[in-house]
């Protein structure tokens, strides 16, 4: 998951408009949210809340859809029939998540087409993690374990997010993400206990995916001006750094349990904090990937645009057939 608050141009505009809202309505809204009430599509809400949500939910939806590509890359090459079926079902789940999330965002008045156009034009962002390539089968294990694992950390609190349709989509999605995480970890365990070549694959995948996974939680709190507002509105429920720390604390022992080494020389257990201290994240890399300079960003966008454009005649045909049929029914 992918609510890393990647900025786009709407954001500044949104921040300004809060001053224009009816103060009484705004106060009532804030009180409901503070009382952990769910906001529903027909309820009054500040424009900035609506915009922030559309941005966050559509980013999340896009991430599910673009996220089908790196793993889809291995469906036809999965090593046996069981792994092939599990992977295909997993990637299909991600498509389903995209579908629920687009539907949740549509309740806020933005159509799926508009959101998809924004993705294809580069205006809308998706999680930076999917701009890294899947080189070996172990990457499928690493993605399930780390990327779906990070997604769960991020999404579990969102099951109680203030916007009802988003919260309900999250409940459904979280169940499936935890399956994915377990399946990914299982792939990694088998590889880590396998031949020397398989162990090498597994360690190499962890080396490549570890830091990008930590970046999935978004910029550090002091560089993330939106976090405070989003936490107050219960659009986020915990800060980026809190979630990242929890992910590290859960994941490091899992790596140790299967004999893999987390690629961070600064990683140490801090008894006082009851948490791991870990090394500095390369934020330069993160911001570059956000800007669209990730290693396979071009391939990802190109694949999405190609699928959409190649499918245009199919969608047109479906619409044309439906309207012909409706005319016929009306005439009968």
């Amino acid at each position: 998951m992918y609510t890393t608050e990647l900025k786009d141009k709407d954001q500044k505009a949104a921040a300004v408009s809060l001053a224009d809202e009816d103060p009484e309505k705004l106060a009532a809204f804030e009180a409901r949210v503070a009382a952990d009430d769910f906001i529903e599509p027909k309820d009054w809400m500040p424009e900035a809340y609506r915009k922030t949500l559309v941005r966050q939910i559509s980013q999340h939806a896009h991430s599910e859809i673009v996220g089908m590509l790196p793993e889809g890359n291995w469906i036809t090459r999965a090593p046996n029939l069981r792994r092939k079926a599990i992977l295909l079902a997993k990637v299909q789940d991600e498509g389903g998540h995209g579908l629920y999330l687009y539907a949740a965002a549509e309740t806020l008045g933005t159509s799926r087409e508009e959101m998809i156009d924004a993705l294809h034009s580069g205006k809308a962002k998706y999680s930076t993690i999917f701009n890294y390539p899947t080189l070996t089968w172990a990457d499928i294990g690493a993605i399930g374990w780390l990327v779906d694992g990070a997604a769960i950390m991020n999404q579990v609190p969102l099951q109680r997010t203030s916007y009802g349709p988003y919260a309900r989509a999250m409940v459904r999605i979280c169940k499936e993400e935890s399956f994915h995480q377990r399946q990914g970890y299982e792939i990694m365990s088998v590889l880590a206990a396998g031949t020397a070549e398989q162990k090498r694959m597994a360690q190499d995948a962890l080396n490549r995916w570890w830091w990008p996974s930590l970046m999935m939680f978004g910029p550090p709190d002091d560089k993330s001006p939106n976090t405070a507002q989003s936490v107050r509105w219960r659009i986020k429920r915990e800060t980026n750094d809190e979630l990242r720390q929890r992910f590290v604390d859960v994941t490091v022992p899992q790596a140790e349990a299967i004999g893999l080494r987390v690629p961070d020389p600064a990683l140490t257990w801090n008894d006082e904090r009851g948490s791991y201290d870990f090394g500095a994240i390369d934020w330069e890399e993160f911001y570059a990937v956000v800007r669209g300079e990730g290693p396979v960003a071009k391939e990802r966008t190109q694949a999405r645009v190609k699928a959409w454009e190649d499918g245009a005649w199919v969608r047109e045909a479906a619409v044309a057939h439906a309207s012909k049929r409706a005319l016929k029914m009306a005439a009968e």
């Binding site: 469906i75 036809t76 990637v91 299909q92 498509g95 694949a303 199919v314």
Partner: peptide, 19 residues
């Protein structure tokens, strides 16, 4: 059919082909 996964003309069709 699995070659289509992630590349179908629309999301609903993608899910159906995967099924």
């Amino acid at each position: 059919l699995s070659e289509w996964c992630g590349h179908a003309p629309m999301l609903e069709v993608d899910l159906a082909l995967a099924n």
